[in-house]
Design a protein around this nucleic acid. Structure first.
Lengths: 109, 109
DNA sequence: GATAAATATTGACAGAGATCGATGTCCGGT
DNA sequence: ACCGGACATCGATCTCTGTCAATATTTATC
């Protein structure tokens, strides 16, 4: 899992097209209200982990829809997956989220 | 211009639906390769400002398309607009971008 | 005031994405 | 071996978004 966009604070020098492509892929994955809530639910759950059954209850959406959103988050590298028995547990990929945040807030103090 | 999502680091307790809606609106505005490059171009331009003519040259896109992207960025509060003569200058809204980044990277250290 | 240049708006279209119902897969228990 | 529950995949639909050509708006200049 490579770094988001190594050491280029986005306000120093213009991003290249490939950089922008990669970063926007991460942001697209994050830019959905349901997925934001899913991520924060996982992050704030005890142990930093949550199974799908815990998450699905919090929404008025069908199970396939939740599964779809989790797939997007996992596919982009923002959530880590681990299967234990019948349950699948998701966990926030701290480093990825962290470096993404730093990249964005590289503007002010 | 209110704060992105006041003081709730997203990993402490789950985001509410309205919070998620507001944050995702900002992220949607940012989650496009062209807009990311536009933002970084503006930020890295001398004086932290750039007029549309400076920006449009960097892309192989029509002028209305660039104008559209700038409108999205300005409409979401990520870019500030100021008209001087025939030219329109854009400038990064540091605080907005900053607080958004902090919100995201509130995961790790 | 007419003209030219810089930027914005409008209308149309194609591609992407969110959602659902139905179905499939995998695992644990009886 | 069968059954039930947890989660994923598939196919369809509907909405949203990026892009362009054409046109409008604003402003400086002659």
């Amino acid at each position: 899992m490579e770094t988001v966009a190594c050491c280029t604070p986005m306000t120093r020098e213009p991003m290249t097209a490939p950089q922008a492509e990669r970063v926007s892929a991460l942001l697209k994955a994050l830019a959905d209200p349901v997925r934001l809530q899913l991520l924060s639910l996982v992050a704030s759950h005890e142990g930093g982990e949550a199974c799908v059954c815990d998450l699905a209850e919090a929404f008025d959406l069908s199970q396939p829809t939740i599964s779809h959103h989790l797939k997007v988050l996992h596919g982009s590298g923002l959530l880590e997956r681990s299967k234990r028995g019948v349950w699948v547990y998701y966990k926030v990929a701290d480093e990825v989220l962290n470096s993404l945040g730093k990249l964005i807030s590289s503007a002010g103090a």
